[in-house]
Design a protein around this nucleic acid. Structure first.
Lengths: 197, 197, 197, 197
DNA sequence: GATGAATGAGCGTTCATTCAT
DNA sequence: AATGAATGAACGCTCATTCAT
C-alpha cells in the first residue's frame, strides 16, 4: 500500500501547544500586558525567538489563546447537548458542562471570563464569540418553543445564566465560597429558577 | 450685599479628580498594565509629573481608582436600602440601584467588574471589598430570616445575583443586548426568581 | 548726624547662607548630581523657588559653595601665617591650621577634597583655586629661600603635603584611623620630613 | 599542521569589557550620578538595553568598575613586591608601581581616588578595599620590624604616602605640575623621608 | 520677596521583536 | 527549525526650573 504523499512532520508541533499553555497560564496570573514574551518562552521551555515562528506577534498569540479557549468551551458544551434531552435535562447538561470544563481547565475558563474584551482581540475572535452565542441562543429558543424556558430575550437569559456561573467562580476565587459538587448542584437549582417558565 | 471681589480659585483637588477620572477611563479602555502614565496625564490635562504629587506611584493610583469606585457603589446602594422595606422591596432597591449606578457611572461599574483582582490591589482595597461583601451578606441574611429569600449560602446568592447583572452589562457591551428600562425590569423579575424562597 | 542714604536691607540674607549650608552638607552626603534642589530647599528651610532668587541655577549654587569653602580655608590659613615666624613655625601653623579648619568645618574640608574637579565648576572657581595655590607657593618659596625647605618644585611639595593631610582624613573616614590631637602631631612630624631640607 | 578553518568569533565578554571601559571613562568625566546609562551604552558601542544583560543595574555596574580597578591596582603592586627586597627597595617598587599603574591606566587610578566612598558601593566592594589595605599594612609592619620604617601607626603612614601620591596626580590634573619620570623620582625621595625611621 | 504646585525633559530600566548563528 | 543575545522604543518616575499667587 502506497505511503501518502505528505511530509512526515513533527507531531502537530508540541512547541506551539507548549507556548499556548504557557501564555494561558501567564496571562491569567499577570494579565496580557503584564506578561513579557520572554517569560512565556521560558515557561514554555522554548527560545524567545521561537514564539515568533508560530505567532506573528504578541497580539496574535493572545487571540490564539482566546480562540483555543473559546472553541474548547464551545465543543465541551456542544458534546453534552446533543441527543433527545428535555430542556431541563439540556440545562443540566450545560450547567454540569460549565462546571466540568472549569474543573478540567480552570485556566481556560478564567481567561475567557477575564479577557473577553481585551483590546488586542481581533475581528475573528469576536466572530467566534458571536458564533458561540448564536448556537447557545438556538438552544434557548428551542426551550422556549417547548414552553419550558421563560419567555424573555434569549440574550438576557444567556447573559444572566452565564453571568451567575461566572459570579460563582469569582466568589470562589475571592475565597468567600468553596466550589464543590453540592454547591454547584445548589447553584444549578437556583439558576434553573431564572430560566424556567 | 455684594459678594466680595476676589478671584474664584480652582478647588485644590481639581487635578486629583481629573487624574482619577482619566485613569478610570483608560484602565477600562486599555487595562491597567496597558495604560501608560503619560497617557493618563494627557487625558487628565496635566503634566506627567503632576500625577506623582497626588499618587505615590501607578499602583497607588490604581488602588485609589478602585476604592473610589467601590465606595461610590457601596454608598449608592446603601442609600437605597435604608428604611422599613420588605425584602422584595429591598431587592428592587438594590437591582435598581445597580442599574442607576451603572447608568450614572458606567466606567466605575465596569472597572469594578474587570479589575476586582488586579495584582496591584493592596490589602486595604481587599479589606474594602470584604466590608462591602459583609454588609451585602447581612442584607441577604435578613431576607432569609424573614423567610422571603431562598435558604442557600449568602455568598452563593450574592455571587449569582451580581454575576447575573454583570452578565447583562457584558452582553450589552458585546452589542447583543440593549440595556433599557424594560429589559432591566424583566431582568429583575428573572433575578428575583433566583433569590425568592 | 545724617543717616546714610541706603535702604535698610534684611541682614545680609540669612536665607542665602542657609541655602549654602544645606547644599554643602547634602553635596557631601549625596554628591552634587545626587542631590535634588527641592531637598536643598527643605534642608535650608526655604521654598524650592527661593533658591533661584539667590543662585541662577544648580551649577551656580555648586560654584558658590566651592568658592565659600575655598576662600574660608584660604583665609583660615592666611591668618595663621602672618608674622615673623620661622619656616618650621610657619609649617606648624599651616598644618595646625588645616587640622583646626577641618575640626571647625569638616563639611567644607571634605567638599573641597571631593569636588575639586566637579564638571560644574566654572572658570572663576578655577581661578580662585589657582590664586590660593599661588599664595601657598610663595610661602614655600620663602622657606626654600631661607634654606629650611627642601629644594624641589613648590607644586610638588604642596601637592604631597596637602595630599598627605587629605589622606589622613580619608583614612579616618574609612574608619581605619582616629584623627585626634596626638595623631595629628605625629603626622605633622612625618610631613615635616617631606618638606625640610 | 594547519589550524582548523572555523570562523573566529568575538570573545563572549567583548561587550562586557566595552561597557566597563566606557563606564570608567564616563564616571571619571562626569561622576557616577552625572552619567546617564544611555551615554555609557553609546560610548561602549552597544544598545542601552544590552548593559542590563551584563549588569543588574547602574549600582552593580559602578561596583564592578570599582572592583576591576581596585583589583588591578592590587595585582599590579603585588607583582612588584614579591621577592627578597629590602624595605627601601620594596618602597621603590610600590612607588614605581603606582606610577606605572597610573601611566598604564590613568582612568582606573583616578576612579579609585575619586569614587572610594560612592554611596553605591556595596559591602563586597568595601571588603575588597579592606583586604587591599590589610596587605599594605602588612608590608608596612615588615618594614617597621626591620627597623627601616618609621615607628608610627601603619594606617597613618599608608594614608600619608598614598595621599601624597594622589596629591601629585591631582596637581598634575590641575595643570600646575608635569608628572614625568624625574618628577616622580624626586617625589619618591620626598615620600621616602616620610617613611624612613 | 517668598512660595510650592506644576511642568516636561530626561533619567534608569524593561521588553517586543529581530537576526546571526 | 530553533535559539537567545542584542536592540531601542517606550515605560514608570524624578527633578531642575518656572510662575501664579
Amino acid at each position: 500500500m502506497a505511503q501518502p504523499m505528505r511530509k512526515l512532520s513533527v507531531p502537530a508541533s508540541d512547541k506551539r501547544q507548549a507556548i499556548l499553555d504557557a501564555a494561558l497560564e501567564l496571562f491569567n496570573e499577570r494579565s496580557f500586558n503584564g506578561t513579557p514574551m520572554p517569560l512565556v518562552a521560558e515557561r514554555a521551555g522554548v527560545g524567545a525567538g521561537t514564539i515568533y515562528r508560530y505567532f506573528e506577534n504578541k497580539d496574535a498569540l493572545g487571540n490564539a489563546v482566546f480562540r483555543v479557549c473559546k472553541l474548547a468551551l464551545q465543543q465541551h458544551l456542544a458534546e453534552r447537548i446533543r441527543g433527545g434531552l428535555t430542556p431541563r435535562q439540556e440545562f443540566h447538561a450545560v450547567w454540569r458542562g460549565l462546571w466540568e470544563f472549569f474543573g478540567a481547565n480552570p485556566a481556560a475558563f478564567r481567561f475567557l471570563e477575564t479577557h473577553h474584551h481585551g483590546s488586542y482581540l481581533d475581528a475573528e475572535s469576536a466572530a467566534i464569540s458571536d458564533a458561540v452565542f448564536d448556537s447557545t441562543a438556538d438552544f434557548v429558543r428551542r426551550g422556549q418553543a417547548a414552553g419550558t424556558f421563560r419567555a424573555a430575550a434569549p440574550a438576557l437569559l444567556i447573559a444572566m445564566t452565564f453571568g451567575a456561573f461566572i459570579g460563582l467562580v469569582k466568589e470562589a476565587d475571592a475565597g468567600r465560597l468553596t466550589l464543590n459538587e453540592s454547591v454547584v448542584d445548589d447553584a444549578e437549582e437556583v439558576a434553573w429558577n431564572m430560566l424556567r417558565a
